[in-house]
């Protein structure tokens, strides 16, 4: 798909506070460079992620959603990530059936020490999304722009 060369995908990261969020943080403090395309929401556990959040992100115009939790066996609440995995598998498959490119929803496991992996995953997802093109599923509406909202400009 040909794209406006200036177009940059926007993606929403739903990161577990116990691991992936800390991993992202570590990437920052370690001065690792990752694409600025991601907006992050910290969630208490990947098991908290209702498919509603994912679809809502797409509705708001985010081009992709990254869900990241603790590695299997490492969940702070023992089993949250296993439950999340089921839900995400269903969500992705169902959305694909309706005509949504499944690559728009990425799930991964990133521990608090894996800042490198976090950078990799985000970069890779951005690359994928550039290939897929902008999300115009729900009428291509712009997502709320955090900066714009703050300054009122």
């Amino acid at each position: 798909m040909t794209q406006d060369s200036e177009w940059e995908p926007r993606l929403l990261g739903l990161l577990c506070k116990w691991c992936s969020y800390a991993g992202a943080d570590l990437a920052g403090t370690g001065r690792k460079k990752y694409p600025a395309n991601i907006r992050i929401i910290k969630v208490p556990c990947s098991g908290r992620i209702d498919p509603l959040l994912i679809v809502k992100a797409l509705r708001l115009g985010f081009d992709g959603v990254l869900v990241s939790g603790c590695h299997p066996g490492d969940c702070h609440y023992q089993t949250g990530n296993y439950r999340a995995r089921r839900r995400l598998a269903i969500t992705r498959k169902f959305l694909e059936g309706m005509g949504v490119d499944p690559r728009r929803l990425r799930a991964t496991w990133v521990s608090a020490s894996e800042s490198g992996k976090f950078v990799e995953v985000v970069s890779d997802l951005v690359k994928d999304l550039k290939e897929i093109g902008p999300n115009e599923l729900f009428g291509g509406k712009k997502q709320p722009d955090a900066e714009k909202a703050k300054t009122g400009s």
Binding site: R86, A89, D124
Partner: peptide, 30 residues
């Protein structure tokens, strides 16, 4: 297809979204 689950077949089965297997759907995660 994903979880070999058919809803409402017997009262003993745990509901789909409250249960899990350690090894399943890993191909989803990259």
């Amino acid at each position: 297809e994903l979880f070999e689950f058919k809803s409402g077949m017997d009262t003993k089965t745990q509901p789909l979204l409250t249960a899990y297997e350690v090894d399943e759907a890993e191909d989803l995660v990259k």
